[in-house]
Amino acid sequence: MSDAVLTEAQRIVMKVPKGPWPVEPNEFGLPDQVGPICFLETWSEAERLPVVEFISWARDAVPQFIGEVARQRDQIRRLERELKAARNEKAGASRG
């Protein structure tokens, strides 16, 4: 994932209303709304509840995933800098 993609994902997620987004039924008791998204339909009634539950779950999970990617990327860059510095020290010591 490039820095640009990560930054764009963070920007998009920050603009979405805060969660959690509860699943709410319509007047017939069918799941019909998730947070600010309403009138949900799928091609298959058997898929409706899993899709609605995914949307509800994703609202809180996606920001966590983006945060974890950013955290790991920062850690990798820090470790790469430390490794480079250690190699430079070792190379300097062997020349000296």
Rank of each mutant, 00 (worst) to 15 (best):
L30F: 05
T7V: 12
E27P: 01
V52H: 02
D60K: 04
I37L: 10
L6Y: 14
V5D: 11
R11M: 01
E47A: 09
N26R: 11
A86D: 07
Q72T: 08
K84F: 03
G96Q: 01
I12D: 05
D3W: 06
D3Q: 09
S44N: 15
L79Y: 01
P22N: 11
Q75A: 10
R59V: 04
V69L: 14
W57K: 12
L40R: 06
M14N: 13
D3T: 07
V52D: 05
A93T: 09
E68R: 08
S56F: 06
W57L: 03
V34G: 09
A91N: 13
R71P: 05
E41L: 08
W57M: 03
N88K: 10
R59P: 09
E80N: 03
M14I: 07
G19S: 01
I12C: 06
P63D: 07
A9V: 03
Q10I: 09
A91G: 07
A86E: 06
A46Q: 14
L49P: 03
W43D: 14
T7D: 13
D3N: 15
V62M: 11
S56Q: 05
E24M: 12
E82W: 03
I37P: 01
D3H: 12
Q33F: 05
S44P: 06
E82Y: 02
E41D: 09
E45L: 15
G29S: 11
G96S: 02
C38E: 07
I37F: 12
I76C: 07
C38A: 07
Q10E: 13
D74C: 02
R73W: 09
F54L: 13
P36Y: 15
Q72K: 12
I66C: 07
Q72G: 09
A61L: 04
D32S: 13
F54E: 12
V69G: 12
V16H: 10
Q64P: 01
G19F: 03
R11K: 09
V51E: 00
F39D: 15
L79M: 10
E45P: 05
E68P: 01
Q33T: 12
E47I: 01
E53Y: 02
A85I: 08
E80D: 11
A9K: 02
E8T: 13
C38P: 03
D60I: 02
